[in-house]
Amino acid sequence: MSLNGKTTIPEILKKYQAELLTDWLKEQAAAGIRRDNFIKETELRQQCSEFLSLLTNATQSGNLSDIFAPEWSQVREMLTSISNSRTRQGFTPRDIALFVFSFKRPLFDHLRKEFAHNGEVLADEIWSATDLLDKLGLLTTEIYQKNREELIARQQEEMLELSTPVVKLWEGILALPLIGTLDSARTQIVMESLLQMIVETSSQVVIIDITGVPTVDTLVAQHLLKTVAAARLMGTDCIISGIRPQIAQTIVHLGVDLSDVTTKAKLGDAFLVALSRSGFKISRSEGEF
């Protein structure tokens, strides 16, 4: 490392804080980080100066390699909060990481000045600095990634709720159009909201339409059979519609017995059955045509 075998980066950070800050801000402007109206000049200066002082403090421990050690916790917290707010503002992971990486040049410049006559020490110091800043930069990318994953999980949950509507088609007739994969989490929600609606509307017939379910395997079949059985216990008849030819064949080969359940290829046909079971009759009025 330096002359006495220890890194001088902590001292350099301390000694040249003001210059480093100015250079760093310049560097960020040059790096073309998207700024427009999202982050004001003063806010960025404030962020950078706070980060620089936290970084300086953390390095005083002499530990420049393990950023997950306790003395680095404030730096990690600050990077987390910067990543979080920038992700929300629509920054790319590149832009977020550049916040850290753009500090390389200012720091390297100062190291070069300091050790202009000692190439070996300079190489060592630059290695320590680059190793540290790489780790911090990668941390922002990891945080970004985690944010995205959380976002996707949230959206999936929202979709679970969105994609299971129970529609009242007619007095006493409900329709449940199922769309997508019937995994167990979703089927649970479907069953609950269906049974709830049956109670609320005291429906006599429910049409479960599986036109939008791409695969009917034994698990899906079992969920359907359970839903039908539960509805039946409440005195409600179920009709399953949307059974396309390829699905019908597959169900037969699987050996699933749907003979207890009324099934129809099309939702419209199921609706007619439902109407007639509820005592309605559809006829085309004569005379007018």
Partner: peptide, 8 residues
């Protein structure tokens, strides 16, 4: 039909 069988 075969696609559906294989996937299932």
């Amino acid at each position: 039909i075969d696609q559906t069988k294989i996937v299932t």
